[in-house]
Nucleic acid binder design. Sequence first.
DNA 1: TTAGTTTTGGTCAAAGTGACTATAAGTAAG
DNA 2: CTTACTTATAGTCACTTTGACCAAAACTAA
Lengths: 239, 239
Amino acid sequence: MKGLYYSSANVSERQAAPPSLAISTVIFALRPSESSGRPTLWLPLVRRIREPFKGLWALPGGPLSHSESLQDAAARNLRETTGLAPSYLEQLYAFGGLHRSPTQRVVSIVYWALVQPTEAALADESENVRWFRADRLGGLAFDHNAIVDYALWRLRNKLAYGSVAYHLLGEYFTLAQVREVYEAVLDRELDPANFRRQLKATPEIEETGEFLQGGKHRPPRLYRYTGRPGLDPDNRSTP
Amino acid sequence: MKGLYYSSANVSERQAAPPSLAISTVIFALRPSESSGRPTLWLPLVRRIREPFKGLWALPGGPLSHSESLQDAAARNLRETTGLAPSYLEQLYAFGGLHRSPTQRVVSIVYWALVQPTEAALADESENVRWFRADRLGGLAFDHNAIVDYALWRLRNKLAYGSVAYHLLGEYFTLAQVREVYEAVLDRELDPANFRRQLKATPEIEETGEFLQGGKHRPPRLYRYTGRPGLDPDNRSTP
DNA sequence: TTAGTTTTGGTCAAAGTGACTATAAGTAAG
DNA sequence: CTTACTTATAGTCACTTTGACCAAAACTAA
């Protein structure tokens, strides 16, 4: 793992140097809670190995390389820290407050990503990379707590719009699994019958002939999501 | 008007130099159409006075000064090009494609703003600053056409959410004026009675005792908007 | 066979929406 | 002064959506 933020060689040399530019990524995945066993939101953090905030946990990130787009840099963050490929990746916000870092002026363009649980299960973890429950983070480095809060807010909003929950699941899923995603993200219980009625009314959810076997009760039908991701400027040309 | 984009002294000297960082702003205001007289969306552009794209029109923008936040820089853009203060200012997106500028790698953090018509009427205009109808822009410099398109898309979306139309109007307004804003932005006609019913159901719109005098017909009641702006990361701490 | 659990389909009332009609209140023309 | 015209405002009605709830279907485990 390389240094998190680009540090220009000699800050004192050029007072009027432009703010340095970094890319960070908030990566969400679903994992079963240790206590209840129900799916909950987790995200990977990396430990700071240098000042400032040495030893604290922070979002994966790094400088923007000269030859990669913003989204490519975010995908590289993801791959380098967790070894995973995202099923969803979207720009979150550019954070540019004056005092985000005590040592230098840093503008961070932050992305947020969703990864599917099959992948998330075999994600890299090490001394300096660890997954945390999204609702039980400690105090993070920089303004990263506020960034995660905003990413959670955005996730909740996008969920209501309706195109994003499926990227936290595998290719095939039951309607009850989708409901569990909603319940985990929104943190409230939903009526199974009503929730199912709404999903069945959305044309992007396609009924398959398969059923999930091996459960303890009536085998639920498996569905598939056929909608395409959003309409970001970055994703607009992909039809 | 200073140069639009920060140009590092010697690009060839440092191939690995970080991409330069610029702030641009899409500024919307309502002006009566010359033809129909009904309000339409306009925005100010500045003429490029140097290469690349010399002579073409572009969004107001400039480098990010070391001592100002992103939002401050956007507000300064606005003040310097039009002399106006925004009634609404929000981050739009960070554009970082590799080939946005033919001469150097530029990452632009773009804001969008709304100004009230009373102010917009006395906006500065000059040889190098001119207002254009948002639906009749020519070919702009860089990727600025795509940026304006995305800003329009965002404006239309925020309109539906319901907190943003009033920032295009003065402090007092009639419900028909709000409807005209919606019709101008969404580009379709709305039923006056139904539209009025919905507005009267939103608690942020407060009925005043005043009426708009001087019209040709029955004087409409004036209303006032009492809601607070959004929940951007930048605006979150302001209660 | 029976109890227990989840899936799945349905009802019902309340709330919201779109199309439309009607009245109120002003100006402008004769 | 009266009438035509225009906009503001209120209300109706059918249709859809939503939340709360009930019940049958289909499987496992005892």
